[in-house]
């Protein structure tokens, strides 16, 4: 457990010593501020478009932070040979995979908290309402989605040699699932065999990341999701995360280090 936390804290330290997070946060604030400063028919009450833009930027920034940070973790350890002194300690490869995951997930969580606090302040100052339960659910589900994405990227990083190709593939897969994952069962109805069965298999196999995207509910002030659904989504995310981590460890445990 010590090794796990030590490796995780190293990843967090790396994130806040690099400039990625700060740049993305400042960009989010600037772009949101820019859109917020536009007068829409002199109506100060209009806020939903601003919430939508801010949340979109937060989602993009969080994905970039999570994928880019995770994709370089294990390849960098191997390329810079820091993995050797690390594994020479009482540290197993499972610890490395687990620690890297934990670090990236916690780092992404810290970044998300900062982003969502900004979002809550922004919408609170315009709307004068504070739907904390909605924001907490949105943040929690977003963080869970990132757990799956991080685990997937980590699995990719022991499969693909170059972090850039891994990051690109993971980004495309994630965005693809978010955009069309929900509709694949509709697509199957319009396809012939065997394509229909193939898409069906993909539909049931992929992690449905779109469950965790509750932006529309937050933007349009819908009531909070049932907590039971939140709990089930948590289990769903943890199961997929565990699968990806297991796959990453399975591949990494016997992999030559150089």
């Amino acid at each position: 457990m010590n090794s796990l936390w030590a490796i995780a804290s190293l990843v967090i330290k790396e994130l806040y010593r690099r400039k990625d997070f700060y740049v993305l946060f400042i960009l989010t604030v600037l772009i949101t501020g820019l859109f917020g400063s536009i007068s829409i028919f002199n109506d100060e009450r209009i806020v939903r478009y601003l919430k939508a833009i801010c949340l979109l930027l937060i989602w993009m920034a969080a994905l970039v932070i999570a994928i880019v940070t995770t994709a370089r973790q294990i390849p960098a350890e191997r390329e810079q040979r820091t993995i050797f002194p690390l594994l020479a300690k009482p540290v197993t490869r499972a610890h490395v995979v687990g620690g890297k995951f934990l670090g990236c997930w916690l780092a992404a969580g810290i970044a998300l908290v900062v982003f969502y606090v900004f979002f809550a302040l922004l919408s609170g100052t315009r709307e004068h309402t504070w739907p904390i339960a909605n924001y907490a659910q949105a943040l929690w589900l977003h963080w869970l989605m990132l757990a799956m994405v991080i685990a997937l990227t980590l699995a990719g990083s022991v499969l693909f040699t170059a972090p850039s190709s891994n990051a690109t593939i993971c980004f495309i897969v994630t965005v693809g699932i978010l955009l069309v994952g929900r509709h694949l069962n509709t697509v199957t109805l319009q396809l012939r065999e065997p394509a229909s069965s193939l898409v069906s298999v993909v539909y049931y196999l992929i992690p449905h990341l779109e469950f965790f995207d509750v932006r529309d509910l937050v933007i349009h002030d819908w009531p909070p999701i049932p907590w039971s659904a939140c709990a089930l989504a948590t289990l769903y995310a943890l199961a997929y995360t565990a699968c990806f981590l297991l796959a990453a460890w399975w591949r990494f445990r016997r992999q030559p280090l150089n």
């Binding site: 810079q80 040979r81 820091t82 002194p85």
Partner: peptide, 10 residues
């Protein structure tokens, strides 16, 4: 190790 590389940000 023969060639020492450590986390450069530390």
């Amino acid at each position: 190790p023969e060639l020492t590389y450590y986390y450069k940000f530390l």
